[in-house]
Design a protein around this nucleic acid. Sequence first.
DNA 1: AACAATCAATACCAGAATAGTAATCTATTT
DNA 2: AAATAGATTACTATTCTGGTATTGATTGTT
Lengths: 145, 145
Amino acid sequence: MLRIGKLADYGLLLTNHLAKTDKPLNTTEELAAATHLPLATVRKLLKKLVDAHIVDSTRGVKGGYVLARAPSALTVADVINAIEGPIAVTQCTGHGGGCSLSQGCDLKDNWNYINQVIGTVLQQLTLADMAERVSERVIRFRDID
Amino acid sequence: MLRIGKLADYGLLLTNHLAKTDKPLNTTEELAAATHLPLATVRKLLKKLVDAHIVDSTRGVKGGYVLARAPSALTVADVINAIEGPIAVTQCTGHGGGCSLSQGCDLKDNWNYINQVIGTVLQQLTLADMAERVSERVIRFRDID
DNA sequence: AACAATCAATACCAGAATAGTAATCTATTT
DNA sequence: AAATAGATTACTATTCTGGTATTGATTGTT
């Protein structure tokens, strides 16, 4: 398994669309139509993306959404983070202690390391990358360890 | 987020213990005591590990469990796989099609790639590694892309 | 042969997390 | 003022996960 929720996935779908379109502003309805997602869900997601300063919003007639930065300055990790909170493979890694076994967990340090590796991978993928095919050497591993 | 379930985590706890102990056979009770996990849960997990040929079991009086292979020949990915099924970051990647958007998902290929990268990372970590500290350069990235 | 220890298999239940929906309020342009 | 579009909040339903209980099968011991 090891998976992200649908909503985070949807979030990427939305930001990906925003990265590719050239319209100055996109309404919720346009986005819902483009991604085939239910309107109410799109609203919920956009709220989180706005809160995380990934997209900017304009209210009123002629309002809508745009990416807050260039696609090359926004990462997959940013989006997942905005929608599901910090990337944490296990319970340990998230908050300040974690699993019920608390004191005696031998694996904690290792999980933190794994977590960092995966986090770094996701942080190296920008929305600009995602708009293309990422099959090449987009990820650089020298930064990881 | 992006996390594995508690059960997969527990599975690693169990296999980690088996990797470190020198007893020829370990009963469910011993394992439950060592990991501080409920007995019934340990049973359930061991069954999955047996099915996946990660541990071997012996029945009857003086029965118990051992790792089926050397710790250096078993990976973190193996264990997660046994307990939660194949690593699949998104719905797309798992089965043969996936997300409701089916036909038109631009991101599918990229998710597959990301998935593969993360999978490879987890496949490079053996139980022998996990028994130590993994802070060094255990992961080799030349195999990834 | 009987008994006890130990794993095997199945089915069930409860709580949490996720996903999805609805309704109302606020802001801006014309 | 009216219409358009985002902001906010609260609610609900379904799925998933984690945990438990029960009964059966196998093997060693006395």
